[in-house]
């Protein structure tokens, strides 16, 4: 179809947003070497490439290192309270389909204090892009074990080693009803991080992206083996999913063609131990979105409110004999 006249005329005033249009006046204050920088950059690249108007973009976060991200974006930001980024984002989206809403959350925020919201957000499948910055440790509160910390991690709350096996955010998410998009990225392959983020943004529904993120301060060498050995990274590709640039393809030769609708395989990939999978594990665009389902048939207008109120008052009304009951002639 050809574009309508309005669309053509609108394009006349399209602005050309640059990376710098998404950089706030506050310089990032993450530790040097922190993986959050890569995520911020990927996000800004996405905004520029999709030309998202900064005023129509909202980044919502909870508490933690990851949740500082909205401060560094020149967009609307909502740096809320620990664990509650998702319901805040849902509230924003429910009556504002025009806004692009991103949620940046950490492993403590999302998988511990806000775990209930996480499961239900997947179930609601609202049109949000969720980035789980998973560095497997509480950073902002100075090194406590998180639900995704590896067993045996020595931290301030587990000085003799974390006692439990970590929770796997990917397989948990894949197991929730109405799941529609699950991907994993790592901060040290920025191109793929960007590509995955782009796919996530373009997906209609809740896209959940877990980003394995290095914390040089508290988890210094956690991912060294994988950072150094590209063959330990399993890249998931598909004609409907991720397509690799040649320079990335050349470095990361361990590739698997994975159909993003293949749930059993997605679950198997999610559980890999030796290799870190990177790519889109699951993508089902047909799952209905709660914000669409609850969008409301008609807009709320004074006339409509009056009609509905009058209907309700009529049901419980009493009037004197002399008065005209419905305010109209019969």
């Amino acid at each position: 179809m050809t574009a309508s006249m309005s669309q053509c005329l609108m394009q006349m005033v399209q602005t050309d947003y640059q990376m710098s249009d998404y950089q706030s006046e506050i310089a990032p204050r993450w530790c040097a070497g922190c993986g959050d920088n890569a995520i911020l950059t990927a996000m800004q690249r996405l905004c520029r490439d999709e030309q998202l108007p900064p005023e129509k973009t909202v980044c919502v976060s909870g508490i933690g290192c990851s949740s500082r991200l909205p401060h560094y974006m020149n967009a609307y930001g909502f740096h809320g309270i620990h664990g509650r980024a998702l319901p805040i984002a849902e509230g924003i989206k429910i009556r504002r389909p025009d806004l692009n809403v991103f949620v940046t959350t950490g492993d403590g925020d999302n998988c511990s204090i806000g775990a209930a919201h996480w499961l239900h957000a997947i179930r609601y499948n609202m049109n949000l892009t969720v980035l789980l910055h998973d560095n497997q440790v509480y950073g902002l509160t100075k090194k406590q074990a998180s639900p995704t910390s590896p067993k045996g991690l020595k931290s301030n709350t587990t000085p003799y080693g974390a006692a439990l096996n970590p929770l796997n955010p990917l397989s948990v998410t894949l197991g929730v009803a109405n799941v529609s998009f699950v991907a994993q990225a790592v901060d040290w392959i920025p191109d793929l991080l960007y590509e995955i983020l782009r796919k996530a943004h373009q997906h209609r529904g809740l896209s959940f992206v877990r980003v394995l993120q290095r914390c040089p301060e508290f988890m210094g060498h956690r991912f060294d083996d994988w950072v150094r050995d590209p063959m330990k990274m399993r890249i998931l590709t598909h004609s409907d999913g991720l397509r690799l640039k040649p320079e990335v393809s050349r470095v990361y030769k361990n590739q698997e063609t994975h159909d993003p609708l293949d749930m059993p395989r997605a679950l198997a990939i999610a559980s890999m131990q030796e290799e870190i999978p990177v790519g889109i594990l699951y993508n089902d665009p047909s799952v209905p979105c709660y914000d669409d389902l609850r969008a409301g048939e008609r807009p709320n207008t004074p006339a409509l409110v009056k009609t509905v109120l009058d209907e309700e008052f009529d049901k419980v009304g009493i009037w004197p004999d002399s008065a005209d009951p419905a305010g109209s002639t019969e």
Binding site: F78, E90, K93, I94
Partner: peptide, 16 residues
Amino acid sequence: EDEISAATFAIGASYA
């Protein structure tokens, strides 16, 4: 899903 979510959801909508 819970009271906290109800409050924060409402805050999100109000904010928007």
